[in-house]
């Protein structure tokens, strides 16, 4: 489950799930929704790896890795499978080449900021928050 929240200059992402990888997957869906709400076929898969010193930085590195893959591969992603072990993230992300007619992309995420960044667990529910610079 994810939602966008307001930030005066940019766009905030909030995602909630029963597990940390699940919250990371939903945050990635929220990132894609900043660009387009149109359907993206999961026809091509890309492997993403990253690691960090804590969960907050791992979230930033994960979403930055997707921004990077979108930029250099000219792709949009819609399906995410994340595994996290000891602050090491390994993921498969599926998507397709960007099609201007079909996807009508609204805006290009530049980078993840550290603004309002948090990763929290309460009673088995994981909530992540961050702000994207667009």
């Amino acid at each position: 489950m994810w939602e966008h929240f307001s930030h005066q200059a940019d766009i905030g992402i909030k995602a909630e799930a029963d597990s940390l990888p699940g919250a990371f997957e939903d945050a990635a869906s929220a990132l894609t929704a900043i660009i387009t709400e149109k359907e993206i076929e999961p026809t091509e898969v890309v492997q993403v790896e990253c690691s960090a010193e804590n969960n907050e930085i791992l979230l930033i590195d994960w979403l930055n890795a997707i921004i990077y893959e979108m930029a250099v591969r000219k792709m949009l992603f819609s399906k995410f499978e994340v595994e996290i072990n000891s602050l090491k993230l390994s993921a498969k992300i599926w998507g397709e080449k960007i099609d201007y007619e079909k996807h009508a992309p609204a805006v290009e995420p530049k980078a993840m900021t550290y603004n309002q960044l948090s990763v929290k667990e309460e009673n088995g529910k994981w909530t992540v928050r961050c702000v994207v610079d667009v």
Binding site: H4, F5, S6, H7, Q8, A9, D10, I11, G12, V107, V134
Partner: peptide, 8 residues
């Protein structure tokens, strides 16, 4: 300078 967020 923006006065309103993109979501709004």
């Amino acid at each position: 300078g923006r006065s309103m967020s993109r979501t709004a």
